[in-house]
């Protein structure tokens, strides 16, 4: 057994696509150990994941390309296990172990 873990975490993968990977060290896939509860003791949801990513994972200071008024900025889709987050409860969806969360910015070129 490993050492006692003080903060329980949820292992998930987070993917960025459509250019958002640029804000995260140009890496498209990240393995993230998300604290199971937020600072208020609430189970980790998507809203918490977004603030966690901004604080811990984002390498680029242009946070406004990812969040706007502490919500995900317009033009970014959030997919929970390949389904639009609107089908899953949006920001309130409770993160489960081994979830795959994909952030993809909508494209307009052609």
């Amino acid at each position: 057994m490993s050492d006692t873990i003080e903060v329980a975490t949820i292992p998930i993968t987070v993917d960025f696509s459509g250019g958002l990977e640029m804000l995260f060290d140009n890496q498209r896939r990240h393995s993230v150990s998300l604290p199971a509860v937020d600072s208020g003791g609430k189970p980790a949801d998507i809203a918490f994941l977004i603030s966690h990513l901004c604080e811990k994972l984002m390498k680029d200071p242009r946070a406004e390309l990812f969040v706007l008024d502490s919500h995900i900025r317009p033009g970014i889709l959030v997919l929970i296990n390949d389904a639009d987050w609107e089908l899953e409860g949006e920001e309130d969806y409770k993160i489960q172990p081994r979830d795959n969360i994909l952030f993809v910015s909508t494209l307009h070129g052609g």
Partner: peptide, 12 residues
């Protein structure tokens, strides 16, 4: 329905 709002121009 799928893309409710456009991204801000600065991000495009």
């Amino acid at each position: 329905c799928c893309f409710k709002k456009p991204p801000p121009p600065s991000s495009m």
